[in-house]
Design a binder for these strands. Sequence first.
DNA 1: TGATACATGTAACCGGTTACATGATTGT
DNA 2: ACAATCATGTAACCGGTTACATGTATCA
Lengths: 193, 193
Amino acid sequence: MALRHAVLAALLDGEYSGYQLAKIFDLSVSNFWHAVPQQLYSELSRLETQGLISGRQVIQHDRPNKRVYTVTRAGIDELERFASTPAKPGTIRENILVMVQAVDHISADAVIAQLEERARMSAAKVELFERMLVRLRGDLDEHTFLRSATPIGPYLTCLRGRRFEQEHHEWFTSTARLLRARAGAHAEGGEAS
Amino acid sequence: MALRHAVLAALLDGEYSGYQLAKIFDLSVSNFWHAVPQQLYSELSRLETQGLISGRQVIQHDRPNKRVYTVTRAGIDELERFASTPAKPGTIRENILVMVQAVDHISADAVIAQLEERARMSAAKVELFERMLVRLRGDLDEHTFLRSATPIGPYLTCLRGRRFEQEHHEWFTSTARLLRARAGAHAEGGEAS
DNA sequence: TGATACATGTAACCGGTTACATGATTGT
DNA sequence: ACAATCATGTAACCGGTTACATGTATCA
């Protein structure tokens, strides 16, 4: 099993509904686990019947009611067990890397366009992470925060997320530039011969 | 579908059997797609019945016979179509990030141990990528190679893979160090009070 | 003779994705 | 009235994972 623990870990941070959790997972901070809303709704039900989280109805007047969840003692124990069994390396699945791998055999233009689009996306994501980090550390400078503030977990994973997107961005841009340059050089070579 | 294109892209590089492909995917260069051997065997059969790859039996005397595959014209066309439809951002699934996210609520020791283990693993992987890069560019220096050598796709994805592992390594080490320091500081604080 | 690497397969299961459905409430 | 956001759910399907099974050839 898998999503289980990611949901538990995300819920440690506060009381959230499925809908709120979906945003946390998908929109901004899917820095450690990817999931679509449907998965979260079903996972939350399952976790509740297993007693790892407990839900409570929140009546709202300005918008539909919702059900928010908190991690139970049993949930924490489950996370503890999880953290004490060896973590297998995560799975990478990047379609755009597949495209670049094949770039010698297919139209480079298509690949370059995708790289540029993804470069824009990751630049935006870097900014999101940046703002998230500032929000998390409040008025402390990073060094002080890291030394002793709590909670530190979400900050640390956010740092990884930011770096990941930064590197992605750099690779997207430099790869796009390189492929463009090579396309240009070939064209010139073709003209000359 | 998903694995499909990763297998096609990997096969562009030469004729491989399921077994060889499994090594390419799993051991060293799973830098763009993760897959276990079983998936490859079944994917190869499927791709062959669909005419995207063609297999041929290779009789061996020193070891069991094998069936090796090459990408067909139809296979290239499929990749071309693939590369011209928008690539959705890849999915990240890192158990160890989940553990770190939860570190404020569970035993930090377990998490630190995992980080140190993973740091060792990624250091090893960086070296693999390093050697792979040297092998791919042969006797050319990187600049020259990047400017005009072919194929360039596998080299570019390998560069991304190496960087990814480097950053992973750095994050594992620095995070482990930080959590250790905080544990130490708490212990001292506890003694003092 | 027993371990290791090579080589491939079937079948069951589970986790993840997509499609579809429903309904409240606020603002335009 | 209509769109947008909030809120949750069911059901079908497909892709990915694990368990199990089988056999060849080399080397210690």
